[in-house]
Simulated assay, not measured.
Amino acid sequence: MPNNRIDMVDALRGYALLGLFLVHCVERFELYWLDPMPDPWFDGVMAVFAGKSFAIFALLFGFSFATIMANERARGKDFTLRFIWRLALLFGIGTLHALVYRGDILQVLAAVGLLMIPFDRVRSDRALLAIAFLLFLQIPLLARVGFAGSADWASASPYFFGDTGLGTLATGSFADVLNINAGPGMTGKWSFYLETGRVLEVAGLFLIGMVLQRRKLFAQAAQQREAWLAIAAAGAGVWVLLSLIEPHILPPGSDAGGLPMQRQAMEWFTGQWRALSAMALHVSLFVLAWHSPLGRVLATLAPAGKMTLTLYVGQSLAAAPLLYGFGLGLFDDFSSAQLVGLGLATFAAQMVLAELWFRHFRYGPLEWLWRAATRTDFSLPLRAK
């Protein structure tokens, strides 16, 4: 079977993994939120990568779905049921991962990914883009803004604002961590994704990713430079516009007599649009740089991007014993600058290991397991020929 992977997409996925890892590092794998104390290093990493790296993952998840379904259709097969099984497997991997690291995103991608199945039958790209825009409008958040002064549900604090047992990660045993993450931690994670509008955002990004695949904006990126320049300009323009108007459209805060959740909901709304516009700029600049002399440097990210699942889970399994109470408990011993340096060094090591791995193997370890289990064919060759 020919290899039709797009190296640029693998490298972009590796870039997103790097950004997500650095965010997790300065967040001390959630423990930062026990006593938030921002500093320039924390603020810098969050400004560059928070919300953007996750959005790139969601975008590429939709792109990969459309690629898999198109490839199977070209072979005369319907991969729908098999893809549902593929998502169920990913949800299982994510659930196990979330027991150790409650910030896991695999569960969310897998569960929301089911929505792509019916939309795969929508052949109009304009219809998909229109639906994505409606999802990005975040009607539930805007409803909370509008009804915050008259409806209890709109003024109520989200569940994840309460105690979800975060302190247990800092002081508890490994069994305590598993138990708290399986209960309040899991519920709090889903509360965050649902109540901040992240689920709708992810669904919209899946649809955008599907359109990118259909329009061959990645596969034929060199021939579609003008389109990527337009996306970059649009992303920058929306970001600048939001930065200018946001102070004028936010409701007053509680210190000025306003309703806390009314302002918070609007901040989530504008924050999503700033992250989306910045993500569009990140992706377009990456694509444009790929087709320049910088492409050779960016290509070093591709091996990590080909085994993102393995590296993503591996990062948490290495960080938890380092930072959490059941291990060395060093979450409050590092500065943000040190954590950024440690994150960069760790990711550089992962890049080297990934490059060495692919000299001998076709897939990453978890990637092979996921692929083989999806096809229920464990004779799938792992070693490269």
Rank of each mutant, 00 (worst) to 15 (best):
I6S: 09
M8L: 14
Y15G: 00
V23S: 05
C25N: 07
E27A: 14
E27T: 12
E30M: 12
P36A: 01
M46A: 12
F49C: 04
A50Y: 08
F57A: 00
F61I: 07
I68S: 05
M69A: 07
E72V: 07
R73T: 08
D78P: 13
D78E: 06
T80K: 00
I84F: 03
G92F: 00
I93A: 03
R102N: 11
L114S: 01
L114F: 07
P118F: 04
L135D: 04
L137I: 12
L142C: 10
G146M: 11
G149Q: 12
S150W: 08
A154R: 11
S155W: 14
S155F: 13
S155H: 14
P158E: 08
G162W: 11
D163I: 12
D163G: 11
L178V: 13
I180V: 15
Y193E: 15
G197N: 03
R198T: 11
L200Q: 13
E201C: 13
E201L: 13
A203H: 10
L212V: 09
Q223N: 10
E226V: 10
A234I: 10
A236E: 07
V238S: 03
V240K: 04
L244Q: 15
L250S: 08
P251Q: 05
W268C: 00
R274D: 07
L276Y: 00
M279Q: 11
L281S: 08
A304E: 04
A304H: 01
Y324E: 05
L330F: 05
L330M: 13
F334M: 15
S335C: 09
S336C: 08
A337M: 15
Q338E: 15
L339T: 02
G341L: 15
L344M: 13
F347Q: 05
A348L: 15
M351G: 10
L353Q: 06
A354M: 10
F358K: 05
R359Y: 12
H360M: 12
W368F: 06
A373W: 14
T376V: 14
D377G: 03
L380C: 06
L382T: 04
